[in-house]
Structure formats: structure tokens, C-alpha cells
Design a protein around this nucleic acid. Structure first.
Lengths: 229, 229
DNA sequence: AGTTCGCCGTTTGTATCCAAAATCCATCGT
DNA sequence: ACGATGGATTTTGGATACAAACGGCGAACT
């Protein structure tokens, strides 16, 4: 009944548990964009009072996952196309930087992990799994960069744009399984990226990353009509 | 006794008033980096309870102005040199983008305002005023960019790096008033920037902005020892 | 004398309670 | 039939109250 009750052991503040609980629910799609978040309901689900929930909502608002209107309530953030394009444009500047700074620090184990992830990604056909793995792959490729703020920001971008990727890849997987160029193209990008990383060629990897994100952004622009609802 | 009591009229949530109150106190230096923020004390200053204060602290934590340790308390964020360098590196990627996107949308009134600010900046000798004006100048130059998230992020960077600029310019103004190259160099950068904006040359302005920030970053690196305390 | 243990005051985290604003629904009017 | 309007209900914002954890100080021990 209280899904996060087990976590209560660690003396961790309820507000952080609530934050993780809600963030997970938003990211894996249980809470749809636009869905209203009633404090009392969430508090009951967690077996807590509204106070920690309110703080969680505020945290998530700052992360961009929730929109909080002063006396009206909280809703799962729904980004229109322009906002998504903006985020992709920002990512286009920051993720190449993260990758360039990460490349020289990537350990052999990290590279092996990336290779393993790439294989898993190519095999997986389930959109949900694909999403999780692709995210892991890219974030892992940045993780060695000694820029904690940058890494946190980038993770935030992946979170707020997750709904977009979900819609997009669900559609891709459902309607045009083997002959859509987007997915194979992504696989090629992954290969090139991994190759550059193994050669420790930071500027090459960085350039490819920029291209990869730009291509994705333009692909999204082409299917813009699908997201406006 | 309650400094923000007048604002209570607008039906604005106390938590937002508390946020603004604390943010202003941190930015103008009344609250020094590392200073402990006791919820009850702040609540008393505002004539409110701790609840809105807690939410304000959480917001400011996400903005990077406050460090919040779960059962220990909140402190004004103190960034070490590496973190500042990281933020400048990020700014180096994002502010040229903001400027490039802003340039074509700058109205004639906005340009006139920028010219006026530039003159004021060159005249002013008080470090506090200089800081405020320089900030206004740059943020105003970005303001026309149709990228709200980006603009908010950039404002956040200026906020979290404010303590650095304060220390730096106070020192410059106090110890080497007329013969330090940094300030005249900044003025030249402003001139070039304004010129590019008036020519509506986005890529030129963008390039200059990158150079401007990079130069600042390297200048800071040279006086790194001053900030380690 | 220095270090460690334990107690006490302080501060945080959370629950409960109250007032005010917003939402929703039914009613009324056109 | 459709839209506006009013009140009842829900829901949020905030205050107060209480329990638990942290931090500092003194005392005892090595």
C-alpha cells in the first residue's frame, strides 16, 4: 500500500523519498504530462503527510519535471515543441563538452561497459528498455568528466525530454519496425561514438556528439505534428 | 522588523517572498558564502513560520545558491575554484548561443538601452554598482532570445558566480585602480560587442562573447590563489 | 594532558490543524 | 440547448506542535 515504505529504514528524509518516488513515476510514464498532482493523494500513497510531498514537488519543479501554479496545484510538466527544440539546442552545446571532458578520463572498465550497453541496445526491441539503455549509454559516456554540475544539468535535460523520446520511440517501434532509418542511424552513431572513445579522440567524439544531437533535433522537427496534440 | 511584510498584500505565497528575500541577501553579500541559515531565525525575520522558509531554501538549493545537508542545515553555497571554472566553461558554451539567438530580435529601444548601460558602466567606479550594471548589460543583451529556459539558466550562472565577481572586482577597484588591464579590457569587449549587435551580426557577436568569457575565465585562473582561503 | 563517551540544548523533519483561495457542479437565465 | 453565476466542496498555503537527530560541552578514562 505504501510503495516506498521499505526505504524508510535508512533515516532518509521522507521528502527525498517522495522526490524519488514522483520522479520515477513521471520518468517511466505512470504519471502522464499534464496530470494533476494532488498533495494529499500522493501523501496517502506514501503513508506520509503533505509536508514532505510539497517539498518534493518544489524540487521537481526546479528540475523542470513539474509545473507548480501558486494556489492552483501541481501538474506534470508538459513541454510544447518549441521548448523541446530549445532543450535540444542547449544539449547540442553542452553534451559535446561533457563528452570531450570525459573522454580522456574514461577507464577501460567504463569502455567495456559502454561496449556491452551498445550491444544490448542493438538487440533490444522494446521501446521502454531501449529508452533506459540509450540513456544509460550516453550518461555513462559523460560520467568521467570532472564537471559535476554539468553532469547534473545534462541528466536534468534527459529527464525533462524523456516524455518526448518516449512518444517518439514508441511510435517508431509500433508503426515502422524494421525499415525506419532513425533507429539504424542511431546505432551507427553509437558505433562511431564508441570508436572515437576507444581511440581517446576527444574532439572527434565531441564533434560526433554534436552531430548526433542535431540530427535528432531535426528528425524531431520533421515529426513535430505528432506532439502538438 | 519584518522587511518583506509590505509584499504580503499581493496574495503572493510567502514561500516566494522568502525565496526572493534570501536570494537578494545572498547576491548583495549580506549573507556570506558558508554562512549558516537557520530556518527559525529567517522565519522570525520575515514574520512567518518555518514552512515557507524551508521551501525557499529548497528552491535556492536547486539554483545553486544554497547547500542543504539533510539533518544538518542550510548554508550559503561556497564554490571552490574548480566549480567556478566549471561554471565559466559552461557559460562559454551557452552565452554565445543566447547572444546569437538574441541578436536578430533586439529592438532599437533595447539597443539604445544597451548603449546607455555601456556608458554608465564606463563611468562607474564603485564595485557594487559596476557589478550590477555589468550584469544588467549582459543579461539585457541576451533577453531577446526566444529561449526562456536558456535565459533562466544563464541568470542562474550569474547568480552563483556573483560571489566570485564580487571578490574579484572589489580587489581590482581597491588595489589597482587605474592601471589594471582587466577593466579597460572589459570595456573594449563591451564596445566590440555593442558594435556587433548594432550591425546585427549574430555570429560575430557570438564569437566575441565566447572570447570575452574565456578571457575572464583565464584571468580568474591567474588569480586563483586569491579565492582559496 | 589528550581523547572518548554520554548528556543536554538546539535545530531539523514531520504530523496535525486552520483559514483562504480555487475548482466543480448545479442552478438559473437567455 | 448553451453559457453564465452562485454556493458547496476540495485543495492548497501556512501555523503550531511534537519527536528525533545533530552538535557542543563537560566528565571520566587511558
Amino acid at each position: 500500500m505504501a510503495p516506498a515504505e521499505a526505504d524508510r529504514a535508512g533515516g532518509e528524509p521522507l521528502s527525498e523519498i517522495a522526490t524519488r518516488y514522483l520522479r520515477a513515476a513521471i520518468l517511466d510514464g505512470r504519471l502522464r504530462p499534464g496530470a494533476r498532482l494532488r498533495q494529499e493523494a500522493i501523501a496517502r500513497e506514501l503513508g506520509a503527510s503533505r509536508i514532505p510531498v510539497r517539498e518534493a514537488l518544489r524540487t521537481l519543479e526546479n528540475e523542470g519535471l513539474v509545473n507548480l501554479t501558486p494556489r492552483s496545484g501541481a501538474r506534470v510538466a508538459r513541454l510544447d515543441y518549441a521548448e523541446h527544440a530549445e532543450l535540444y539546442r542547449i544539449r547540442e552545446e553542452l553534451e559535446p563538452l561533457a563528452l570531450a571532458e570525459s573522454t580522456p578520463h574514461l577507464s577501460d572498465e567504463a569502455l567495456a561497459h559502454l561496449r556491452a550497453l551498445k550491444l544490448q541496445i542493438e538487440r533490444s526491441r522494446d521501446p521502454g528498455v531501449w529508452l533506459v539503455l540509450d540513456r544509460q549509454f550516453h550518461l555513462a559516456s559523460y560520467a568521467a568528466a570532472p564537471m559535476h554540475r554539468l553532469l547534473k544539468m545534462i541528466e536534468g535535460f534527459w529527464n525533462t525530454t524523456q516524455q518526448y523520446r518516449r512518444v517518439y520511440y514508441r511510435m517508431v517501434a509500433a508503426e515502422l519496425p524494421p525499415d525506419d532509418p532513425a533507429l539504424p542511424m542511431t546505432h551507427i552513431d553509437h558505433c562511431l561514438l564508441l570508436d572515437a572513445l576507444e581511440r581517446r579522440d576527444a574532439s572527434d567524439a565531441s564533434r560526433m556528439m554534436r552531430t548526433h544531437i542535431r540530427r535528432t533535433r531535426l528528425t524531431l522537427a520533421a515529426s513535430q505534428h505528432l506532439f502538438d496534440e
